[in-house]
Every structure is written in structure tokens, then in C-alpha cells.
Design a protein around this nucleic acid. Sequence first.
DNA 1: CGAAAGGTTGAGTTCCGTCAAGTGTGGTGG
DNA 2: CCACCACACTTGACGGAACTCAACCTTTCG
Lengths: 232, 232
Amino acid sequence: MNSNSNLACDTCPVRESAACASLNDEERIKLSKIGRHKILKKGETLTAAGDENTVCATLVSGALKITSNDRDGTERILSLVHPAGFVGELFSPAVHHDVVALTESKLCVFSRPQYEEIIEGHPALALALLRRSADDLFDARSMMDLAGKRSADARVAGLIQAFARAASHSPCHSADTFDLPLTRGEMAGMLGLTIETISRKLGLLESDGLIKRQGARGIRISDHARLAELSD
Amino acid sequence: MNSNSNLACDTCPVRESAACASLNDEERIKLSKIGRHKILKKGETLTAAGDENTVCATLVSGALKITSNDRDGTERILSLVHPAGFVGELFSPAVHHDVVALTESKLCVFSRPQYEEIIEGHPALALALLRRSADDLFDARSMMDLAGKRSADARVAGLIQAFARAASHSPCHSADTFDLPLTRGEMAGMLGLTIETISRKLGLLESDGLIKRQGARGIRISDHARLAELSD
DNA sequence: CGAAAGGTTGAGTTCCGTCAAGTGTGGTGG
DNA sequence: CCACCACACTTGACGGAACTCAACCTTTCG
């Protein structure tokens, strides 16, 4: 159990952008009373499918994946969670998906029933979560769109573009040099492909001059236009 | 323009289950002032990708699909909307997906900016939408899971089970005789497959004795267990 | 240094998409 | 009533894209 200390909202890096930013000081103090920090190391899980649904959380730093697993053990990534993101299935008695840390991550964890009570008493929080939820829904649909592309080329190209957009912090622009945040296996899990196919397609993208690789993870996009065309 | 009359909430079939059910009479009357009914015939669109985002709506009867289109014209179905469901991308300036009627549908349409104002002033509505949004997100992830299965067999089997669950009105149980609500093309669009593959897989499921078909749309599930195993 | 995990590459095979032809079926109009 | 058409669906043959299996390379970490 690696939880600890009271919450230090004052120094929280996501205090302006997370759902709790909608609360005033008094309300936030109240919320902080029922929350606690938790550190997940890379690969550790917050909740697993089948668990009783007791917690929800705001991600403070790091990154999480939300996944489900086929019987044969293949992991399917349903969503990535970035700092200020909210995780947890509100209003549901059971947990349906695994939530696992991609990198060492810091969370603000709450009891789900208590959090729901607070939501009901605090309209601003409900509204903030509604906005976040609308974004999550849009992201999920974007991912469905990506994973549903016919060819593996289009999916890989689209994923690279998505990472490039996420890597640049300005929302409309996209970085042209960045590191892939996932292993080949995780990318495969997002796109419904295999590790080998990801590896081969990245090789092809490079030999076609659309990207340049530096080591296993480093990517430089050389031809945004052709990449966009491929991914359409 | 097939809009009309004031809203008749009193006789609305989804008045107990839609988001607006959370409002008291006075509030609902206020909401009904800014809404109007609209009938969409099969195939007609409510909003198209690229439009300015001006409307949102509650589905009263019928069924909708939320789709995106590849450049080559392939339609990808991102979500199905059932009565009492809410459609519209709140808090977003532009529309990203098409919303099209699968069958003749009756909607309660609102101006999105006005609706957002009302949400901000009515916590119960925000909370109701948050619950609905959480459900939508779960559905979206379930569909990602389904469409991400390795084999076409698993996807088709899973889709049939999903329809069987939707056809029985009790949420935990699943019907064993029902009609497919979609054309082969639409099923293909949901699963990222082709019409021909859907057709063939249905044929195989029948010849393997898992289902029995009556005409193009009628399905009877003969072997729930093997179907579930296939779809896992 | 050795082991483990992540990544690449190759050869063979299978599954699904493509193209094409053919079978209902419901609706419209002569 | 039948002829015709549009649309949804089925079926077959074929080729190619992605999966599987397997070997090997690279980096990291104990």
C-alpha cells in the first residue's frame, strides 16, 4: 500500500486543469479530506476487471492505460489517460476494465461512493466531469475510427500523427520530433495489430521517407502531408 | 423543415428515462420552450461532420447512428443511439461526426448553446447527462473491444450477442429470437469488415448450428454457450 | 556478465478483401 | 396482374495483406 499524506492541492501540477479545479477552496479542502495520493510504478494496476468498483481517481502525473484482455491473453488498449484525466467508472457497481500505469504515475484516489456524493452536492464538479467525459467520449470515438481503418498502414500512420499531436502541447499544432510513448506491443494493442506488423510498418514508413527513427522510440516526421494522406 | 409544435412532455415515451426526467415540472417547461420536435426519415441526417455545432437532441423514438467516413467513402459506425439517448457534442464548436437516422426517428432538438446554459443552471440535468455520458463511454469502449477482436468470427458472434442483449428489454438477460436491426453494410461498418464477410460468417454460424436464420434479418440463437465462446 | 525484455527480420500460411455474378424481395407503374 | 427496377443479400474464385512461428539483435538492469 503506497499511499500517504494529505493532499497538497496547493502544489498540485494539475490543479488548474483537473476536474477539481472547478471547486472553491473550501470545497477542495473537503474533497482533499476523502482523497489520498497513491504512486503506481510502471506496470502496476489501480483496478482490475471484475473488482468491486470502489475507487476513482485523478491522474496527477505519469500515464495510464485502460485495457481489456481476450481469453488468449491479448491485451486491447481502450484508452490512454494523461495528467488531469479522470479514471473510474462512476455509477457502476463493478469494474469492467483494467487500469494500469504505463510509467510511474501519481494519482489522487477517492472512494467512488464518497466521490459520487460530493458530485451530487457540487454542481460545478458535475459540470467539470461532464466536460471531461464529453472529451473522453470524443477521444474514444477518434480511437475507434483509427483502429477501424482498413489497412495497417493507415492505422500506424494515424497513430503516429496522434502521438505527434499529443507531444506538442499546443492543441492545434503537432510536434515533428518526439518519442513514442508506448512499446510495440502496446501500439499493437491499440490498433488491433501484432507487434511484428507494427515493426514492419514503421520500417516501411522510414524507408519511404515519411519518418526518420532514432533508436526504438524516437520519431521525426519528415513528410507530414504524405503521412496525413496515408492515414486518411 | 419538418419541425413543429411545442413539446408535449406529458405524453413523451421517454419522459421517465431521458436526461430531462431529472427536471421538475417548472424546469421542464422552461426546457420545452427552447426545444422543438423533429422527425427524421430513414437515412436523413441531423448533423454532418464539418457543420457548425448548433444543435443537440434527445432521441424520443427510432434509432440513430453516429458515423465517420473515410475518404474512399467507407462508412464507419461509431455508435448507435436508442430512445432516451442524447446526441450532440457538447462544449465543442464544430461537429466531428455524422448523425443519421437508421429508421424514422423522432427527436427533441435544442440549440446547443442554449442547452449548455440550461445545464449550467440546473445541476440535476448536469448530473443526469453525466450518468448518460458515463454509459455512452462504457458503450463506446465495449464497441472498441468488439471491433478489435482478432477474427471476423469473434466480431460477428459478439455483435449478435450484443443485439440479443439489446433486444431483450431486461438488461441482464438476452433474447434468443430477434431481428437484426442493421443491414449487412451497417454491421460491416460497425465491425470494420466487409458486407461479404458478414454474410459469409452468418452463413457459417448457421451451418455450424449456433444460430438459425429466418429471412435476411431474423435470428434465433441455438447455442448461446458456443456463441459466447466464439466471441471471447 | 548473463538474463530478460523489447525490437527486428524472414518464411510460410491463413484469412479476409476484392471483383464479379447471381438470387431474392419490395415497390412502382404500365 | 405482371414487368421492371432498385436494393439488400449471397456465393464463388482469386490475390494480397497481416498473422504465426521462429530466429536473431539490442538495450537495460541486476
